[in-house]
Design a protein around this nucleic acid. Structure first.
Lengths: 214, 214, 214, 214
DNA sequence: CATGAATGAGAGTTCATTCAT
DNA sequence: TATGAATGAACTCTCATTCAT
């Protein structure tokens, strides 16, 4: 330890703060204007920096965008993994817990999540480097694996109807995607209230009943 | 009657043909390259016209884009309306029929449908004129109304659990959005097969069981 | 024949005129400011066009630059080839004629020639696409082949000392390069007079005497 | 005497070391990437310093570049001056010795020499301050004066044909320029071997025979 | 009706240079 | 002395859009 070391640490912290500053600004702008409409200049202004400064922290616009998404996917994968690995809850309880986990994930960063769902099927993805695309896809696959394993557990426990667990995992993803985008869309017209929790709860409730073994 | 009139009619037809020609070209390109990456020049080339000619038929690029979506929404609204208005089928049978209707809609024009779902919550929408946005929203609302009425019927018939029919209508929309985007996303990685029909069937099957009155 | 055809032809001519207009402007600017310092904006202004218009006629700045050089190299290769293929002159007479040919080439377009000699060994070349580089190199090689063949003829005629004809061809190229750059350099300080002809004459005179078989 | 004085001296030495460090780094980079493509950041990294540190030792990038060239020209002038001042050798022997001197100069710093020859007629020069340009020109003139004096001696000794000795001096310069650039150019395509010595030897051999008084 | 030609406005990105520390 | 961080000013290139013909 010593002065040099402390300096080093402080510098590192400064760097992280700046990165976050930029990522936050970018997030806001990608959300309000969309990825391609949000310019580096916009982001820089929002972050109270010069455009050139952005490039000290990110290789380019795509890198910035991908960073934002990857960061989020990692968090999401962790949450699903955590739920699946839980040894106390039954599959049914896990499905119930999923309601809160999904909403948690949404709340963790709604902006990015929406971007991510959009990214899923089009436009943006085609501009990303293959490397980045594969990173993102890999993370997405990890999420789905965890989900399907929960259903697998439920089937093995004899509480869920024998469906393909992968298909059921997909179903959660589909509900999540659809619900988030749809509620967001409604909020664009009438931004007053957030019905997402209710919508998710209902959807999973129904799904739970729909796959319960009789 | 007379020559002038016939000329007028022919002109009108010609116009419609050209418009369709352009819309078709645009559709293909928005699909392959995404909305912002597809240039007017690209579209013109695909339509075997000059870029300038596009502007004889559409006010601008966004107008072109919106036309594409509106056209599709109208078709979709019709289909839902048709199903709702059917006087022979029970609500349960209608829900079952919905499987095919949704897939039909998808098949009618997958490209636009995906675009439309993307448009739902972000990017594109913000660039459209308020007028266009409202047109699109109105059409979307019409679709959902028809869906919710089907559930209403089912509840009144005593065959569905008493949920808010609007929420159930939304649920279909959510499943449709999520499923289409998700299957599309999978196809971007591995374009071999189309699992959408199965996915939709399963989702609606499960939902149907989930809301069946006992 | 017909109107359409005439239109086509006129269009073609227009295009060529524009291209030439731009190439001429570029030439002047590359000369006065150097390749990397001359901006597209500069060139556009000099050509009395918008920067964007440049890109209608050339793929990018490097393409513009390479076009300029290739065009010239082709001319040069032709001249050397022509001299070598002459069936009337003896090798000695050809060497003598080379004095005028070289000066002719210089006069044909001094600006480009100087650029070309600079391009030869550095900076610029590294930015060009490999494809363009190879095109240029191929043309250069063709020039040298013709030159060496002239010396070969002289050696076979028994009028030149038995040196490697390729080395002698290189020698001409070396003299040409050195003389042009050096005279240009002098003219940058004192632009009054052009001593290149004298310098070339003297150099080739001396070389001729230096390789004469005794 | 005294501490202050010693400190002063040491500081001076430190400064010179750093300057050399930077010049060496710059040299390598100008060579590999060319002048305009080599960034200050590159140079700083190569010199294991920060970009800002460069500016403690050089006014700006052009100053750095000019320093590099001047340094070299001084060495070159010395070598030519030395040869000219030699009182033992005949002019013919000096011309012969020139073969080695030129190659020596090349070997002393090929990188800079090539840069210098490029600088001669274009691009770079135009960006330099008039002051720097004149410094460089003065040094160049000195070199040529020495060369011409060697030929003058030969003519006075009656061993060389009566040509303008200045023109003959230029000839050496021309051969040197041309040969170095040409061999470098060949090495850019096929970096295996260095034929410069042979080329210079042959060129001067031929020139020597070409101007020998009979 | 159709278009070739042109462009204004702006995008992302780079880099020599400065300055507080 | 040395530097990390920052930036202003440019640069190349793109594209939706217009207009004379």
């Amino acid at each position: 330890m010593g002065i040099a070391e402390r300096r080093e640490r402080e510098k590192d912290i400064q760097q992280k703060i700046r990165r976050k500053q930029i990522l936050d600004a970018a997030k806001r702008l990608f959300y309000t204007k969309g990825f391609s409409a949000a310019t580096i200049e916009d982001i820089a202004q929002e972050a109270e920096l010069s455009p050139a400064a952005i490039y000290l922290y990110f290789k380019n616009k795509d890198d910035l965008y991908a960073s934002l998404n990857l960061q989020f996917l990692e968090y999401m994968a962790e949450r699903f993994e955590g739920l699946y690995r839980d040894t106390v809850l039954s599959a049914e309880e896990k499905l119930d817990a999923l309601k809160d986990v999904l909403y948690d994930i949404f709340k963790f960063d709604p902006i990015i999540l929406i971007n991510l769902f959009h990214l899923q099927a089009s436009d943006g993805l085609k501009k990303l480097s293959p490397e980045r695309t594969s990173q993102i896809n890999k993370m997405g696959a990890k999420c789905l694996r965890s989900l399907s394993k929960i259903f697998n557990q439920g089937i093995e426990e004899g509480r869920f109807v024998k469906h393909n667990p992968i298909a059921l995992g997909d179903m959660i993803w589909i509900i999540f995607t659809g619900a988030v985008l749809w509620e967001e869309s409604k909020r664009m017209i009438n931004p007053r209230k957030d019905y997402l929790k209710q919508t998710l709860d209902l959807a999973i409730e129904i799904m739970g009943r729909g796959i319960k073994a009789t």
